[in-house]
Design a binder for these strands. Structure first.
Lengths: 238, 238
DNA sequence: TCTTGACCCTCACGTAACGTCAGGCTTTAG
DNA sequence: CTAAAGCCTGACGTTACGTGAGGGTCAAGA
């Protein structure tokens, strides 16, 4: 059952190139756990699982370096990466739908009237760009920070609660944390207030080291990360 | 109305980076048609249209070099690129749907039983890879070529007809060519016979110079391209 | 047993499409 | 009139591989 695969096999089945697998080995991202005595790479089921995580995280827009960091965290389970990937695919589909609408508008407009409003073209390009970006742009960060300082007290409350739960070692999926996350989310709403983009992006940030460097002033990064994880839980139930 | 845009404006509205626009200028892909007297780039509506085509073609998976060639062909209208882009987005959406299904399978399987079949993971990776590739893989080319030689006579017939229409200078959208394309498509079906992937990819090939190097033996590339264009017409009516 | 073709290995250099300064004009808002 | 914001042209850096070169390995068939 737990048969090993040679690199060519794996490449063919996954659609990745051999070179890609070589490269992942080279940078220490995925070193197959076995080799034949002449040095042939042998990929185990565990390796394949890791590869799956890599592929999913790539789809989320992480660089290989970032993925390397993510995968060092033992908290990041296969389940989580799969669920994040699911969320991403959903997001993509919704973007594709709006994109398609806009393309349709242009196409029919071109067919009927011969001219075209450039604005429509710009909208399309904007949509295309959106599907590539991830995390928060600097401007978005600025907005968030300013809005946050307006309501600092409220956040403080939530955070102290969060810290209590953390020190109790409560798990994300228990009820108390669930409620906490709900409350966080409501407050969050006022922060984000309509800007879906920021919300989505925030979700994507939560496994990144950028969290540390972000420096939210009042919030220490550990609490922040804790809550973010809880939220992503919420998000994935939907 | 026909107002010019400075590079920063354009970048902000389209979501592209300034550097990207600089780069496109550098390689002669999109050189803004005007400059202020101190050298500031000014993008006209025409430039924006061209940029739109570039963005769409990029989404189709063309490299910038290929796009440069494509755009030198005056036959490639905005309408066509938009429609190709539409087809691509549709394809993406269908891929996303199957991908989502497979991810769901894995996710629930992980939640109920703790174990997971690696095959499912491999399927996911395969699907992800599929959304990246374009055109035909060498193996697919081999298959096509062999199947083609089996039925060479039939194709010859269609092609002579095509050449006649071409010499008459008939346009793609007239009825006779329409019928011809229908006939081609039926025969095509036997060539492709179920392999959706090959069919889709063939469509994407039609604006590429690879057509020339492809060397189908009996088919000269001009006829081939002619028919392919007709087909893509058919495809986009759907 | 020998060979031949399909795989595998490790260098190592090449590439596409930008990112990211640096250094220096220009324009605009107060 | 001055400071901030925007634009310019180099020019070097980066990511994630592609693409050989040169050389072992393995299974099948003559």
């Amino acid at each position: 059952m737990s048969s090993f695969m040679k690199i060519g096999d794996l490449a063919q089945k996954t659609g990745l190139s051999i070179r890609t697998l070589h490269y992942y080995d080279e940078i220490g991202l995925l070193s197959p756990s076995h080799r034949t005595d002449v040095g042939y790479r042998l990929y185990s089921n565990q390796d394949i699982i890791r590869l799956q995580q890599i592929v999913s995280l790539r789809q989320l827009g992480f660089s290989l370096k970032e993925i390397n960091k993510c995968l060092k965290d033992p908290n990041l389970s296969l389940q989580q990466t799969i669920d994040l990937h699911r969320a991403k695919v959903k997001e993509q589909m919704s973007l594709s739908r709006t994109l398609l609408k806009r393309l349709n508008v242009i196409s029919t407009e071109l067919q009927t009237t011969q001219s075209i409003a450039v604005e429509n073209l710009i909208q399309v390009m904007e949509t295309v760009s959106m599907s590539k970006q991830q995390y928060l742009t600097p401007e978005q960060q600025e907005i968030l920070r300013s809005r946050f300082s307006e309501r600092e007290a409220e956040w403080q409350q939530i955070l102290t609660q969060a810290r209590i739960e953390m020190s109790k070692g409560t798990n994300f999926d228990t009820n108390s944390v669930y409620k906490l996350a709900m409350r966080w989310e409501r407050s969050m709403e006022s922060l984000v207030s309509g800007d879906e983009q920021i919300y989505e992006s925030l979700m994507r940030m939560y496994q990144r080291e950028e969290l540390e460097t972000f420096n939210w002033g009042a919030i220490d990064s550990t609490s922040f990360e804790y809550i973010l994880k809880a939220i992503s839980f919420l998000l994935l139930i939907d």
